[in-house]
Amino acid sequence: MILAPITLTGHAQKEAWQNKVLPPIEQLGRDVWSIPVSFPHNPMRYTLSYLLLGDGEAILIDPGWDSEEGLTNLTAGLRQAGLGLTDLTGIVVTHFHSDHLGMAARLRVASGAWVALGEREVRRFTASEDLDLVLSMHREELTLWGVPAARLSEVAMNRPSLVHLQNLADPDLRLSEGSLVPAQGLDLRVITTPGHSPGHICLVDEPHGLIFSGDHVLPRISPHIALELPGPANPLADYYASLDLIAFEDEMEVCPAHEYRFRGMQRRVAQLVEHNRARSAEVLRVVEEHQPKTVWDITRHLTWSRGWDSLQSFSLRLAVSETASHVVYLRSNGHAINVPVTHPHLVEL
């Protein structure tokens, strides 16, 4: 099937993406700014943070990864808008991932701004969490999926990464489906869009003709939809349902958290659905041709952009957990795939 292409609007952003440099700070309207924040040592390279100005309000969407370089990026963007860090009044984060929420705790201390997440977003690790138990359950999950013992240490999360997650900001506010971000002079409506995370949200700004899509809809890549235990029982089904919610029109400009801006939300949603349907079909072909015994066996027979051997550590963990989400989804649609996916000790939410 040949699907209609999206319309590029962030030309400078795409050029910067292709040249592997940080894109420029851009003013998208009188009261809206796009500010790239460095994402060090990661192929995504940066998070696109958005500043919106209201009546005495300065709201920042997705402040990005916490680093000195990123703080310098944000400070420069605020300065172009005539503001400083202390002028921030609110921080809205689309989901609980470090490249979105990471800077929030530091900015809250500097400005006194409140921090908001969607009401369904889950903090996987609290400050009081027993990290030894978390690590043990995570290894149990990976073993269930067939990750070889010799590669468990490579693929599994480690203590430093868990401590990092524990230190991310807790929200002051929770935003419900259909609610407005509490900021005078702004009209930011919340759409709950689970899939990439359990409580991911997008923000619709009809007066400015903008949709802030976080990681839910990106212009070039498909976001990672993982099965995480404990977690939602069928994240891919959740993703399809929330794609339907966000594809309500096709002309507003989409402001994603990575890559570059575009128009054509309905067209891009159609592409994402087609991509994931094709991936599920490939999983079924692998099951039929190879009779795999585990999720790992399925994963290693799938097509990967840089080849199976290129997947290591974090990227390998993403690959296995994404394959598990397709297995769960296909089972929910009546396909018999006889590989272990869930365990009674790994309770689903």
Rank of each mutant, 00 (worst) to 15 (best):
I2F: 11
L3V: 04
T7V: 05
L8W: 04
Q13I: 09
W17S: 06
W17F: 10
L22T: 11
P23E: 07
E26F: 03
S34H: 01
I35W: 14
F39A: 07
F39E: 05
H41W: 13
L52Y: 15
L53M: 07
E57R: 14
A58G: 07
A58S: 06
W65I: 02
E68S: 09
T75V: 10
G77Q: 02
Q80A: 01
Q80I: 01
F96R: 13
S98P: 05
H100Q: 08
L101R: 11
L107I: 14
V115M: 07
T126Y: 04
S128F: 01
D132I: 14
S136F: 07
M137A: 01
E140Q: 15
N158D: 04
N158F: 05
S161D: 02
A169H: 08
A169Q: 11
D170H: 08
T192C: 15
T193E: 00
G195E: 09
L203Q: 06
V204C: 03
D205V: 05
E206H: 06
P207L: 08
H208V: 03
I221G: 09
L227Q: 14
P230G: 03
G231Q: 08
G231A: 01
P232Y: 03
L236N: 13
L245Q: 13
E251W: 07
A257K: 00
F262G: 11
A270P: 03
H275V: 14
A281L: 14
E282Q: 06
V286K: 01
K293M: 09
R306G: 05
Q312E: 11
S313H: 04
F314Q: 09
L316R: 13
R317V: 11
L318E: 03
L318K: 12
A319D: 08
V320I: 14
H326T: 08
Y329D: 08
S332E: 15
I337C: 04
P340Y: 13
V341Q: 15
V341C: 12
T342Q: 12
P344C: 03
H345Y: 00
L349H: 08
